[in-house]
Structure formats: C-alpha cells, structure tokens
Design a protein around this nucleic acid. Sequence first.
RNA 1: GGAGCUGUCGUCUAGUGGUUUAGGACACAUGCCUGUCACGCAUGAGAUCGCGGGUUCAAAUCCCGCCAGCUCCGCCA
Length: 598
Amino acid sequence: MTDSIFRTGMRTNLCGEVNKDFTGKEVVLSGWVNRNRDHGKLIFIDLRDFSGVVQLIFDTKINSEAYKIARKLRSEYVIKISGKVRKRSKETINPSIPTGEIEVVVDEINVMSSSKTPPFMLEESKKVDEDKRLKYRYIDLRTEEMQKNLRLRHRITEAARKYFNSKGFLEIETPIMAKSTPEGARDFLVPSRLNPGKFYALPQSPQLFKQLLMFSGFDRCYQIARCFRDEDLRADRQPEFTQVDLEMTFVEADDVIRVIENLFSFIFRDVFNKKIEKSFKRITWKDSMEIYGTDKPDLRFGLTIKDISHIFKGSKLKIFKNALEKSNGCIKSIVVDDFSSLTRKELDDIVELAKKSGAGGLAWIKIDKDISFQSPIAKFLSGKEKKDLIEYLNLKENNLILIVADKFTISCRTLGIIRNNLADKLKLVNKDELKFTWVYDFPLFEWDDNEKRINPVHHPFTKPDKETADLLESQPLKVKSDAYDIVLNGEEIGGGSLRINDSKMQKKIFKILDMDEKRIRENFGFFIEAMDYGVPPHGGIALGMDRMVMLLGKLDSIREVIAFPKTQSAVCMLTGSPSAVTEKQLEEVNINIKKTGK
RNA sequence: GGAGCUGUCGUCUAGUGGUUUAGGACACAUGCCUGUCACGCAUGAGAUCGCGGGUUCAAAUCCCGCCAGCUCCGCCA
C-alpha cells in the first residue's frame, strides 16, 4: 500500500480511502462529524472529509474514555481519531458507501473544534433557500454537490492549462487595474488616490493586453482571466466571471477554431474519459438566424424554421399581406409533429409568448383528419395555398403549423424563442447530449434600434472580412467579419475573431462607431499607436469558463460553480459587500457621496 | 428601468377572514437503548407569520407601500 499523498501530521489517510485492505491496520483520521448514532453503550459516528465518510465505532467495553467523549459529539464537530480498521460482519456491511465493508474502532479521540448547530443540514441543502446557502456558503460548500462542482471546475481549468502549455502557449498576467473604455459593458471603477479625480477600471476582458502581447511577439498566449462587467445579473451572468482567453499570431480563423476543438477534445478525454467528435458542426450566422431563429442554436432537437413567404405572395389574409409589404417582411413557420401533444392552454401560452417576443401575433393551423385545415385563418387560405403548404412543408395528419408574419428579424427571433419553448414543453431535449456548433460569418456591425446607432456585433477590434471590407463606408451593415462563436446546447460559451492589425483600419472602425478623433485618441490612442510599429496578423477567442462548467456539470446556474457568487442585486450574502466606507477612506480618494436620501 | 414568482419555528413546509393555544417533518435539548448507517423510542423547548401602514368586531390569510431572494425583458461591444 502506497502512502496517501494526503498524509499529514494529523492523519495517515483520508476518510474515503479506508477500505478492506486496511483491515487490522492502525489509522489516524481527521474530519467532520457527519452524523452520530447513539445506541446507548455503542455509538456510531460517520466521519467526513472531502473524500467521503467512514464509520467510527465507540464501544464502552473497548474504550470507555473515548466513548465518553463520543457521547458529546455533535454534527460538524472537527475531530481527530486514531484506531484500528476492522471488517464488519456480513449483516452489517453497508453496500451504499465505498467504505461500507469496514469500520474504525476508535481508541483515541481528540476534539479539535466544536460547532454550533448548523443553520441547515448538509443533506438538505438542495431544498434550502439559496440566500441561506449563500449566507453560510462555507457550510454549503461542504456538501457533496458543491465539492463535486468546484472539483469539476478545477479539473477543467487544469486540463485547459495542460493543453495550452503543451501547445506552446504562454500564460502571461495582465493588469486588473486597467484603463476605462466606456464602449461595451459598464466598467467597474477604482479611484486612484495618487491621481485625484482619476480612475482605473477593472478589465471587462484582457482583450487589448493580449493583443499587445501578440504585437510583442509572444506568438501565443492564454489566461484563465477574471473579467468584470457592471451589468445586471442572470442565472448565467455574474459581475465577475472567468474567461479562458487566448490569442495567437500568424493565424487564420481555422487555426483558432482547430485549437478550441482540440482543447475540448482534450478536456473530455482528460476530465470525463470520453471521446467527442474532433470537429464541430459549422453554421453561418445567416443560416442560424433563418433556421433556428437565433445566433446560438440548440442542435439537440429539430423544429427548424421554414420560410413560406413564397406561398403567400398573393394572400388575401391581411396579416400576411401586410407583413410581405414591409421592408424585409416575411412569413416563417415551424411544424410540430402532433398537435395533441400541446394542450389548448399551452398553445395559447405560445401565442402570448410570440406577442411578448415582439411579433404582432402567431397564427396556427392544425392538420386534421384527411389533411383538413383547422384554424382561425383557414377560411382565408386559397386551395392552392393549402396545397402548396402541404407539399412544401410535407404536412401530415396531426401536424401543427405555427406561423409568424413580420419583419425578417422579428419573425426569426420569435420563432427561435418559440422553438426553444416548444422543445421544453414537448420534452425534446436529451439532457445528456452535448452538441457543439460554430457560428461564423457574422456581420461586423448591427443596428441598435433603441439607441439609434451602429454597434459592433463582436468588438471593435474585429477584422472586417476581405470580401466585404470595401463596403465599410458606404454600407457598413453589409460588412462581414472573421468572427466565430462557439455554442454548446444553445448557450454561447465563447466568441472570437481575427483582429485588425492596421492602425488606419482600426481608426476607420472607431469612426464608423461614431467616435470622434479626440475620443479615439483618449481611449485607444496607445493602442492605435502600437499598431504603427509592426503588428502581425493575429486572432483569438475567449470561452466563458463558468458557463462551460455549468453546462458540463449539467447545472442550471453559474452560481453552482462559483465558490462565492453574488445575488441578483450584486450583493455578497456572506461578507455583505458592497458596503459603506469611512469618510477618511473617501477623502483619501477624493470622492464625495451624493446623499440619496434613502 | 420593467414584468412575474416567492417570503410562516434553525431548515423544509401545512394553513385562502373566526374552529389556531399557528399544525407537521427533520434538526435541536433531556432521558432510554450494543449493530446502526436518513438508527429507534419517550419527553421537551422552539415562530415579532419579511417590514410598515390600512380595511374589518376579528388578518398569517384581504388591500396599499417598502424590503429581500429567484426567473425573465431591457442591459451584457
């Protein structure tokens, strides 16, 4: 038997390591009292550490000293024991735990720390309100679940590091006290005491620094980088989160894509001992929008969107006619196999959902006996339109067609949302399946209708695609980029691109984004200047570490894979941050707080 | 900034205007118990019903405001 790597002065082994090979051996174990079962003159204690539990036995007949102490043990006391491992008799073996064939007869016990009654029992943590779990996170983290989640996270980052290191990537740290660049997400600001009135910003990503490292010839770099964005929280969004960020020199998009595919293949082998497809499906942004109604398609199920505009060119139905008259108007549909799989209420909910998603409404047609059309709009459909529909959508009895007629983006988006909703209602998703997809061929910019301005789809350092770059000034929205997103089961887990390596182009992009010379100089002057000193073509990608672990761990919130997450209002329930600071601290950093009257 | 859901002993919850002295389970305390492993048995303690206001003879329950947590929209280049 080899020595446990966990052997210390306070233990010879971990609780979960002790098995029948230890029979007759003396062991020293340390851990938490998981449970005590007091049978009068005989006491059983389950001793727990991260590796598992082992049953200790205290017997008045064998050691009355230890027995006396054991009577006083309570949940979560921390103890050290020494004793002899013995086989359990056949009838008392517990097959449900790995150490169930043995028990430790304790001859010496040492209480190293007592515990108040815990606010909740570890085995019930799943049912406990999350705010209570977060307030007592140090206890919550003792649960098997949380231990498992954070260990999974560790193994995934470990595998990523191993992979990158073996491929010549350097891990180089970049500043956390960085420069504020108000584009994109809101920055977290840090006042500078030595520079009154000035602020650092916590990085939204190491983007500019990792590009600068490429300028400097490090060839390829990576970081497991903490990033900060002061935006509202969600189940998959925390104000600070972790990205696997990498950047490479002298690469084409395909080179970066292949690195990531190999990375995932390595992670799956290393962490899950599982083989996955070496290359992932790729879909253009346009196809993704048209077929799945989103730029992050879930490929685990069908229900694809079909355009049926051509069938209704001469439609008498007002909603169809009006839609087709709009610029970019179209009619899109999804076919559900069997309408009886949806209740009337569920169908109504879907109509509601369509309206909420921005569409004027949702038309539906049930294909009844003998392919008859049952629908509020049936009487407005001509025989030819019905016939064309049946043929084009290959309709069969019991099918249900859901139709949205609106502008292209609204129709697609709405049906995309409905598609995901249907998959849930119809239970079409196999939760064990993992479907990776690359989405590529993105537009470089998009129109922000709320702000009435043009925005980068990815970020302003993304290189315009060669084919369309000459449209930059005339029709910027038509320009495409060499950007690529990686999507897993309908969740965007990463995005990257080839970057601009020419100062003129970089300036041009900023100008299209409506930044004037002064602002460009103030925010990005250093970066553009750097581009005048020999900058190699380069590109990279960033993967959302928290989301990745969440998906691979089949969890539904990233808070389950973050040790100390914040609540939806960005508060730490455990420490109480953010909190007020003293007048003196504020004075030192030259800040006056406006009285809010609250 | 907006919408929805939730808030009752330490924990999970029952309770939709009076029958409630707010019930149960687990946890906790005390005692009994030598083979349990979600041990068992007995007894006991434990709840400003999130906070504030209102309606009512009477409010955990109805109304209004606030707070907190969660989900979502906006936002997240």
